[in-house]
């Protein structure tokens, strides 16, 4: 038993050592890499209509997807879209599996500790939805209710602070499961993004679900790994230009049917 335990420990050490070596050799600047290889890896959502979803032709499409293609085109690079889910989009960036995350990413202080953000490119907000029969006027009314939310998403972290302790927040791995739990009646209330909720209500009229409370207005930003300042500056230039020449407004009108409004820088 002790001998096999030591062997396991030895394996762990070997693993950590390999990890350290592989990361040391990965020191190239991301922007140079993109310009040299003429390709860029961008994380996009595929379960988040109309920002990112899979169309009938099985190709990803949506606002985030077009934004990714737009930025790639301005960088003169071929885009490689990497589908991510809400909880794993930041780890993908941290481990450099992608160069950028364009995945309806909101900005908050916790996230700013681990990744950097560019200027905002599109509007977004999260809210609480429930059937009309359920009276919810304030966050205190959530007491004793079961609520589904996507783990690690802004609605999860914000709701954990806003909801009373007796509210049971059931956390799911991705938006599809979060919505599926509500549609199947496994929870009474769902906390999710405006766009996801809109398509859920449209596809499931029998639920009688409606908008109840605003959790947070959180425009979408592009996520960049810490230390990639040249890439971040470049993407900021592209977003600024697109904001001025109306390309962002066109994108927002096309997918969200509303203006971008004020976009924070």
């Amino acid at each position: 038993m002790t001998k096999s335990f030591l062997n396991v420990l030895r394996l762990c050490l070997l693993f950590v050592a390999m990890f350290a070596i592989s990361s040391a050799s990965n020191a190239q600047n991301a922007l140079d890499g993109i310009l040299k290889s003429k390709s860029i890896k961008i994380a996009i959502p595929t379960d988040f209509p109309p920002y990112g979803f899979v169309g009938l032709d099985m190709q990803p499409q949506g606002l985030d997807v077009e934004m990714a293609q737009y930025i790639a085109q301005k960088l003169g690079a071929k885009v490689e879209l990497v589908p991510v889910s809400s909880p794993n989009r930041i780890p993908y960036l941290q481990t450099k599996k992608v160069d950028l995350v364009i995945s309806t990413l909101g900005k908050n202080p916790d996230r700013e500790k681990v990744i950097d953000f560019t200027f905002a490119y599109a509007p977004y907000y999260q809210a609480v939805y429930a059937p009309k029969s359920l009276s919810i006027k304030s966050f205190n009314d959530l007491a004793g209710k079961t609520i589904s939310a996507t783990r690690g998403a802004l609605e999860d972290t914000e709701l954990t602070k806003l909801a009373p302790p007796s509210a049971q927040i059931k956390r799911f791995e991705d938006n599809s499961s979060t919505v599926a739990a509500f549609v199947a009646g496994q929870v009474q209330v769902v906390a999710t993004g405006a766009s996801v909720a809109a398509s859920m209500i449209q596809k499931n009229p029998q639920l009688g679900a409606e908008y109840k409370l605003l959790i947070k207005d959180s425009p979408c930003f592009v996520g960049v790994a810490k230390g990639e300042d040249t890439l971040r500056t470049k993407v900021n230039e592209i977003i600024s230009a697109a904001h001025k020449n109306g390309d962002l407004e066109k994108l927002s009108m096309k997918w969200l049917s509303r203006s971008t409004g004020e976009l924070p820088e």
Binding site: P91, G152, T157
Partner: peptide
């Protein structure tokens, strides 16, 4: 693993 995932989603220490 739910706990590990939750911790990871809070502090990004995957």
């Amino acid at each position: 693993s739910y706990s590990a995932n939750l911790i990871q989603s809070r502090n990004f220490r995957a």
